[in-house]
Nucleic acid binder design. Sequence first.
DNA 1: CTCAATTTTCAACATGTTGTTTAGTAACAT
DNA 2: ATGTTACTAAACAACATGTTGAAAATTGAG
Lengths: 195, 195
Amino acid sequence: MSIYIEKNRRTKQLIQKSFMLILEKKSFESITIGDITKAAKINRGTFYLHFKDKYDLLEQIEQQLFSDLGTHIDDLQSQYSSTSTFKKEQEDLAVTLFQFIEIHSPMLRIFLSDRGRAGFHIRFRDAFSKKVRLNLEKNETFNERLKFPIEYFLSFITSAFLGLIEQWVQNGLDKTPQEMAMLYIDIISFIQNKE
Amino acid sequence: MSIYIEKNRRTKQLIQKSFMLILEKKSFESITIGDITKAAKINRGTFYLHFKDKYDLLEQIEQQLFSDLGTHIDDLQSQYSSTSTFKKEQEDLAVTLFQFIEIHSPMLRIFLSDRGRAGFHIRFRDAFSKKVRLNLEKNETFNERLKFPIEYFLSFITSAFLGLIEQWVQNGLDKTPQEMAMLYIDIISFIQNKE
DNA sequence: CTCAATTTTCAACATGTTGTTTAGTAACAT
DNA sequence: ATGTTACTAAACAACATGTTGAAAATTGAG
C-alpha cells in the first residue's frame, strides 16, 4: 500500500518534472499532452489519471508555489513586534520576497518569461518601457544620479503603472485619468513619507 | 479597384471585430477559428487569407494598440521645453498614459483580464497582494492616513515588485535578495526626491 | 508462495481543430 | 469578353484531445 502511493506520487512528480523541463524550451500553449508523456516515457492516458488537463497540471504546480510563498510571509509577520516601524517592515517584506524568489528561481524563470502568448502584460510593458527609456535618456543629469541599472528602474515604473491600470480597468474606470495620475503621485509620496 | 480594397479591409475588420466580441465571453485559448468565422458569417478558409493564425490576429490588434500608444507619448514629448521639471514630466506622462487607457478601455479590459491562462502574473499578484493586505490592515494609523483606496495601493506595490522580480530573473539573478530590497527602497526615494 | 483484488498502464477509438487545397462564383476593370 | 480579385464551399491529411476496455503490475490475505 505504501509503495502504491509512492508509485502514484512518483508518476505524478515525473509528469510535473518532465513538464517543467519541456517548458524551458517550448511555450506552455504549444506543449501537448503527448510531449509531456513522451518525455516522461509513460502512456498518454496515464496523464489523465493524475491531471484533468494541461491547465490543471500548471495550476497544481503554481499552487504549491503560492502556498510556499504564503508560509514565508507568515513566518516573517509572526516576528513583528509593536515597536517595528513601517519602513522596517516594508524592507523586511522586500527581503523575504526576494529571498523566496531566489529559492524558486528555476521555476519562476520559466513562468515569468513565457512569451508563448498570454504574455500580453509583458509586451505591453515592453512597448511602454521603450518610450519611457527614450524620454529618460535625453535627461543628462538623470543618468548621473542613477545608483542602479536603468532597466530595473524601468521595470519598476512600468509594472507599477500596469498594476494601477489593471486595477483601474477592473474597477470599471471609477476615476478620471487626472485622478489616476494624482493617485500615482500620492502613492509614491505616501510610501516615501512613512517613517 | 478601390472597392476591392474596401471589401478586403471590411472583411479583415469584420474578423477582428467578431474576434473581440467573442473574447468578451471566451478565453483567447479556447476560441477556435471556427468560432470567429461563424460569428463573422464568413468561410473558415477566408480567415487564412487575412491572418496566418489566431496568434497573428491577436498580434495585429495589439500592434495597432501599441503603435497608437507610441503616438500619444510622442505627441506629449514634443511639447517638452528645456524648462520642464522632472516631476512635471512624470505627471504629464502619467496623465497621457491613463488618458490612452481610458480611450482603449473596451479592448484593454479584455486583454488585461484574460484569466484563461497565461495570467500567471495576475495570480501571482493576487497571492502576494492578499498577504500584504493582511499585514497592512493590522496597522491602525495606516488606514487613517490613506487618501486612496487600498486596492490601488496594493496593485501598485505588488506590480512594482513583480516588475523588479521579472527583471531580476531575466538578468539571471545578478543581485542578492538584500541588494534587490535596497534597490526597491532606492527607486522609491529616487522618484520622490526628483524635484 | 499463491492468488484475487486493486491500482496503474496502455493501445485504440471517436471527435474536433488546424491549415491547405481545389474548384467554383460574383464583382469589377480593362 | 477577358482577366483579376475576393470570397465560398467542400474535402483533405495531420494532429491533439479525452475516453474506454483490456492488460499488466503491485499489493495484502490466506
